[in-house]
Write a protein that binds this DNA or RNA. Sequence first.
DNA 1: CTGAAAGCTGTAGGAACTACAGCTTTGGAG
DNA 2: CTCCAAAGCTGTAGTTCCTACAGCTTTCAG
Lengths: 145, 145
Amino acid sequence: MDRLERVMPIGSLAERTGVKVETIRYYEQVGLLPPPERSEGNQRRYGRAHAERLAFIKHARDLGFAVENIRTLLRLSDTPGIACDEAHAISVAHLQEVRDKIAKLRSLEKELERIATTCSGGVAACDCAIIEALADHGQCSHAHH
Amino acid sequence: MDRLERVMPIGSLAERTGVKVETIRYYEQVGLLPPPERSEGNQRRYGRAHAERLAFIKHARDLGFAVENIRTLLRLSDTPGIACDEAHAISVAHLQEVRDKIAKLRSLEKELERIATTCSGGVAACDCAIIEALADHGQCSHAHH
DNA sequence: CTGAAAGCTGTAGGAACTACAGCTTTGGAG
DNA sequence: CTCCAAAGCTGTAGTTCCTACAGCTTTCAG
């Protein structure tokens, strides 16, 4: 089906993968995506392999993996057989990061709820509960380090 | 009690508030913190008002408010009486952002759990489930935009 | 009085892009 | 075949929120 339209310019790749043109060029620049063939006029021409690799990158970025970690994961995926341990370690560490972030955001959510509902938006009612809450560290649950 | 030691150099302010020296100078540079008095030798000398304002900034940053929003909140807190509406709007908008972020992270958590447990870290068992999961967008719950 | 610690300015870096400016190439319409 | 707008190119600068020098000067405890 796509046997005949196998190569595409950067714009089409961008459209297909949902990664912006500039970002694709950036990934090439930092070595995440290998430099593709070029047309006579020096324009990038991508094939299936590039599209797949970019999809991998996009997916991992959407999951919040750092570019450095993605670099490692890509290296591992290029190494056949070995090195699953390392991929596992990266994922587990990242999962932990995500969980920590969630916990932190939950506590922020609580405090923001408290702050936002205390002052309901009227002019007369407060002066101003939100600003006071932010000024006064005492009321909130954050511990001093 | 602190009647006599009312002014302090930047290092002490940093220690008290938990904000790094460089960051304090940065806040001054971008106009969040007003320029303090200087000593004969041109060093910054901070008083109580500065410490309070910086605490406000720190607290808001810890809550994830963007510097731009903090700038607005500070402007409001300098305006007596009026403008509670705006502070309320900023907080509510920020609360919504936080909630969205939490929701997104939860779905990432689920997918990472799935990915990380599929491949338990052995070498023989997979080749490699994590990498396949990242390469293959089909299995995950993210909708195409 | 001295000298190590702390402060100063100004600039560069970092993460992960995004957005120009000023050009060249491409590919479909006429 | 010719034209020209859209898309691509390179290279640089901007974004956000700091952090980290380098190369000085000031401070204040011993």
